[in-house]
Design a protein around this nucleic acid. Structure first.
Length: 733
DNA sequence: CGCCGCAGGCTTTTT
DNA sequence: GCCTGCGGCG
């Protein structure tokens, strides 16, 4: 593609970014401002116009989805496949580097990746191994501590626990856990990044090699980088490459897991002559929605500063609904969704966004009641399922006998008579000999500490793994999985499962074989020295697979605000805007955390393209306790002129006893009073009316007032529909 | 070994 | 209110 055509589709600000000359750039890209477009066009521009070879470009993202999309769009732009360009996630790229340079990184060639669940189990075992009390030192918190340290680049020796006995124990656990990982050849997610950083830090020739190779380093979602990711980019690109980073400090919502918004400011300080470019024109949302988003985010301090605008119109006002309780909120939202569908809208156009997963239930119940297909994001992903992880554990042992996490999982699943006592003996032996569980098991088989029965059970397991390895070494991946699932007894075990889950579990195992049969090794995998099995196992750990549910089916989308980042929907329902829930009670005391909640609100609002409906409930059950709720402070931060209050039933005033603050708040904005009970409403509930096209029906509900008055009518032939009274011209019958 | 019952926890989760 | 994980029992 020639450069003119490449730039045609861009606005001036985007074009400036795409064609920016020599130097470092921070592209401050507001929500819906065409960030991915800029990144992909920039890469195409570098390739086509500046003639940078593909292997001179490194493009880093956070999610596999983003990486895949970026690669796809670059290839579309260039109308050819790009070979040798490194496009991937931080973790994927770190993994690749470690595979290629495992010796320099101090890892065994067959190292395996621990996912979050594996890691937690191993930490737990480590705590037990140290003889520590799990209730005093909960594995969850210990894992948290370890990951936080790694995200900051700290090894155990660099941890300063101060005088806190708990923190001291955590450092001990961290140290022991590291040792367990070393024995088992195991690398957790944080470790991938830390090792990749250390690899460059301690290996000058290697660093020079990659510095010479990557002339351009592009990073997406820079506001989400943690300390170690920043350090890695700085080390690799700071002095020799041209860095092009894209991000939005206003959408930084992962501070709680180590992301550092400050990295954007640090970039400007650390990368000499770095220039900030802003993308502020929004192509997604209506003017009213952007006005609300801007008003909210303006309350935050220390922003790099930008303001979204659009040349599209204001659009519909943002609707605000105060429900008496959470059930009513759910009924209302689903009612509105039915109206959207009735008017010919797609279910998939509607998204319900909430602060915490527990909120999904009430909406699901309503959706089920009305037979509306829906999809909840963020459920168990394919490779996270127990039966899949069981099967993978066998193959992990085939690939690496020392993988203790896999050993623990597979050894007695399904039960084969290897009890806790036997296992404890093996674990003690492993600790004493500083070896893997596998080696310890083999040693125990040769010794005489175990009873004959235990020995024969353990022998059976060891022989099984050896047989799976030797017997299928030249077979296809699918056959290797099939054999493992069959011979381990997993298949029979899950077939016999009585809890009604049997069928789906067996189906999942079959699907695993399918996935394995479709898996193809890429050239990059081969270059990094990966075998088919190793590559597949890494793929399973790093790309946990799509969450449940068919994305292509037309269903209502339910997800947390965090999951919604990066997505957009024509109709967004932002629910549960209550103090304590959103902003979350745990975040309101610290200004920094409150600002992150506010950014979450900003993210939520900017997901909406055409219509945004915000709701809150005056009462809801939290942890089983009915609680009265005050409206979220974020509601008070919305500009009144873009809001319209929607009422459950026109003319019926809400009991004043609830929502004191809500009533006061709404009243102060002239929103709370709504229409007095019978202020010139043109229709009555239950009234018979006629519509020019839809025919005769009965008025079910009304909301809004004046020009915004909407009327819900159940038509004899077309069912219930919401109509704007001003347009619909309903005639009384 | 496996099932059942109860206690305790519970914000968000790209990899 | 709901899910997990542990401990006791058969």
């Amino acid at each position: 593609m020639e450069s003119a055509r490449l730039l045609d589709a861009l606005n001036p600000a985007q074009r400036d970014a795409v064609t920016a000359p020599d130097g470092h750039y921070l592209v401050l890209a507001g929500a819906g401002s065409g960030k991915t477009r800029v990144l992909t066009h920039r890469i195409a521009f570098l390739t086509e116009v500046e003639r940078v070879p593909p292997w001179g470009i490194l493009a880093v993202t956070f999610t596999n989805k983003a990486a895949a999309e970026m690669r796809g769009r670059i290839e579309t732009l260039l109308a050819r496949a790009v070979r040798g360009m490194m496009v991937g996630t931080f973790h994927g790229i770190a993994h690749r580097l470690l595979r290629q340079h495992w010796r320099e990184a101090g890892l065994p060639e067959t190292f395996q990746i621990l996912d979050a669940d594996d890691q937690q189990r191993l930490v737990k075992r480590t705590i037990q191994g140290l003889g520590l009390d799990e209730s005093r030192f909960p594995p969850r918190q210990a894992t948290w501590y370890i990951n936080a340290a790694k995200d900051e680049g700290r090894r155990p020796d660099a941890c300063d626990p101060g005088y806190s006995p708990v923190d001291r124990a955590f450092v001990d656990i961290y140290r022991a856990y590291e040792e367990a990982c070393r024995r088992g050849g195991l690398v957790d997610f944080a470790e991938l990044l830390l090792r990749a950083h250390e690899l460059f830090l301690t290996n000058a020739p290697l660093l020079e090699h990659y510095r010479a190779r990557f002339r351009h380093v592009l990073v997406d979602e820079f506001q989400d980088t943690n300390t170690i990711q920043y350090a890695w980019v700085r080390l690799l690109a700071g002095d020799t490459a041209r860095a092009f980073i894209v991000g939005d400090d206003d959408q930084s919502i992962y501070g709680w897991r180590g992301a550092r918004v400050e990295n954007m400011q640090r970039f400007l300080a650390d990368f000499p002559g770095a220039v900030t470019l802003k993308l502020e024109q929004n192509y997604r949302s209506t003017g009213h929605i952007l006005k609300a988003a801007n008003a909210i985010i303006q309350r935050n301090g220390g922003r790099l500063g930008k303001s979204l605008w659009t040349d599209a119109g204001d659009g519909a006002p943002i609707e605000l609904f105060a429900a008496h309780n959470a059930e009513e909120e759910a009924r209302f939202v689903v009612e509105r969704i039915r109206a959207v569908i009735a008017e010919g809208g797609a279910r998939a156009d509607c998204a319900i966004l909430y602060r915490s997963n527990a909120q999904s239930r009430l909406f699901e119940e309503q959706l089920i009641q009305h037979d509306i297909p829906y999809r909840v994001y963020g459920g168990l992903r394919f490779f996270d399922r127990a039966e899949i992880k069981d099967a993978l554990a066998y193959l992990r042992l085939v690939a690496s006998r020392h993988d203790d996490a896999a050993f623990e999982r597979a050894v007695n699943t399904p039960a084969r008579g290897i009890g806790e006592r036997t296992l404890d003996q093996v674990r003690r032996r492993a600790r004493a000999d500083q070896t893997s569980l596998w080696d310890a098991a083999c040693a125990e088989l040769a010794g005489d500490a175990l009873a004959a029965r235990a020995k024969s059970a353990l022998r059976g397991f060891v022989d099984l793994i050896e047989a799976l390895d030797a017997g299928t070494r030249d077979a296809t991946l699918a056959i290797r999985f099939e054999r493992a699932i069959e011979r381990s007894g997993l298949k029979a075990y899950y077939e016999a499962d009585s809890k009604g889950l049997a069928e789906s579990r067996v189906e999942n195992l079959d699907e695993l074989i399918n996935v394995a049969s479709r898996f193809v090794l890429t050239q990059e995998d081969v270059d990094a020295g990966l075998t088919e099995l190793t590559a597949f196992l890494a793929h399973a750990a790093l790309e946990a697979g799509e969450a449940e549910g068919e994305a292509w089916e037309d269903c209502v989308q339910l997800m947390t605000l965090h999951s919604a980042k990066g997505l957009e929907f024509p109709q967004v329902f932002l629910v549960g805007l209550e103090e304590g829930l959103f902003p979350n009670a745990r975040s309101v005391d610290e200004p920094g955390r409150l600002e992150e909640e506010r950014r979450l609100a900003y993210v939520g609002i900017t997901r909406a393209r055409q219509r945004l409906t915000i709701s809150w409930a005056e009462a809801r059950r939290i942890h089983g306790q009915e609680q009265l709720c005050a409206p979220s402070r974020f509601l008070g931060e919305l500009p009144p002129e873009v809001l319209i209050e929607v009422r459950p039933r026109a003319g019926v005033s809400r009991p004043a006893a609830f929502g004191r603050d809500a009533t006061a708040w709404l009243a102060a904005r002239g929103l709370g009073r709504g229409a007095p009970a019978d202020e010139a409403l043109p229709y009555r509930l239950g009234q018979q009316v006629r519509h020019g096209i839809l025919g005769e029906g009965v008025v079910l509900a009304m909301e809004g007032a004046g020009a915004h008055l909407r009327v819900q009518v159940r038509f004899a032939e077309h069912g219930a529909k919401w109509l704007v009274a001003g347009y619909a011209k309903l005639e009384p019958v």
